[in-house]
Amino acid sequence: MNIFNRFIVTTLLVLFASQAFATQPTVTKIERTDSKTILITFDQRIKPIADILSQPIEGIFYIKLYADTTFYLGSSTTSEARKPTPVNPNDNGFAMQWQWEESTLTAIDNDRLSEITIYLYFSDFKNSAEASLFSYTKTFNLVWQNGLTITSTNTFPANEKAASTTHTLVANDTAATFSITEDTSGFFSLSGTHNNTLTFNGTTTNYESTTKSYTVKIKATTGDGDDKNTTQTITVTLNDLNDETPTAITLTGDRTIAENTNTGTELGTLSATDADANDTFTYTSSNAKFTIDNDKLKLNATLDYENATSLNT
């Protein structure tokens, strides 16, 4: 074997050894550093791969953000591409930390999540030993939350047709001022200190209609900046009142009664038509020949065909 061939073989063996024993970069920490920034820390420095002409390839993170089955970024089958930037890279462009801005975090804050699962697929990154990264999935705490949040509940009940039902708005900063940003029904208004009293005017509402709940979007603010503004959608659910009059009474049974039928015989079952759901009814009869037991109509006297051929209850 000539010297040139020995050099090639030796070079290949060294290259193989460096690949075989190179340690794959791994993620050691994921954190949120401000309202829209996610920071990834690795156990060693990495950088985007360079091609044969020493031109850098743009390293990309392919990402999903989800909680249980709710996807805030990507879907169960797709990921979104993000180009991260290095934090304190060395002269060769290697860095242990990479970050990017993620506006989706605002939606996560609005849903008040304390943690989120992230799926990362690293494309075109390597360490100094040419070892590449693979995919990574981890649930991490959202260590930074929007500074301002609305802490009062986002639901409250109101009686149908009620003139006004109030709900107190509370934020984690007492200086917050509230405003209405969306009110399609026109039933909501604000008053009080910093507009913190939300009033629902349900005079024209009716539980028996198709609409049984109403929403309003509230904004709280203490100034400029993402961390000083937040929104909340509040839902009012109507209570069904016993405010409708029964419109009909129905007797289910045979209305033909043979004379001399025994007293106490059950003649049929009474029911009422009423728009109010789940109402209960009390029945009375103005005819002493009948008695009512709950919803059962019973004979209260012996009947004689020669005296009367029909009776009203």
Results as ranks from 00 to 15, higher is better:
Ile3His: 15
Ile3Lys: 15
Ile8Asp: 00
Val9Leu: 13
Leu15Met: 15
Ala17Ser: 15
Gln19Val: 11
Thr26Lys: 15
Lys29Pro: 03
Ser35Ala: 13
Gln55Gly: 09
Glu58Ile: 15
Gly59Trp: 07
Tyr62Val: 04
Asp68Glu: 10
Asp68Ser: 13
Thr70Gln: 14
Ser75Val: 00
Thr77Met: 11
Lys83Tyr: 13
Asn88Ile: 08
Pro89Met: 01
Trp98Lys: 03
Thr117Asn: 02
Ser123Ile: 07
Phe125Lys: 03
Ser132Asp: 07
Phe134Leu: 08
Phe140His: 05
Trp144Ala: 11
Leu148Val: 07
Ile150Gly: 02
Thr151Gly: 08
Ser152Tyr: 08
Thr153Ser: 11
Asn159Ile: 01
Thr166Met: 12
Thr177Val: 14
Ile180Glu: 05
Ile180Lys: 03
Thr181Gln: 09
Gly186Ala: 08
Ser191Lys: 14
Leu198Gln: 03
Phe200Gln: 00
Phe200Trp: 03
Asn201Ser: 11
Asn201Lys: 14
Thr204Lys: 15
Thr210Asn: 03
Tyr214Cys: 00
Asp226Gly: 09
Asp227Gly: 07
Thr235Lys: 11
Val236Met: 01
Thr237Tyr: 06
Thr237Ala: 12
Leu241Ser: 06
Pro246Asp: 00
Thr250Glu: 01
Gly253Thr: 01
Asp254Phe: 07
Asp254Leu: 13
Glu259Ala: 04
Gly264Ala: 07
Thr265Tyr: 09
Ala272Lys: 12
Ala277Pro: 03
Lys289Gln: 10
Ile292Asn: 02
Asp295Tyr: 06
Leu299Thr: 04
Ala301Tyr: 14
Glu306Gly: 15
Glu306Thr: 15
Thr309Phe: 07
Thr309Cys: 09
Leu311Gln: 14
Thr313Pro: 10
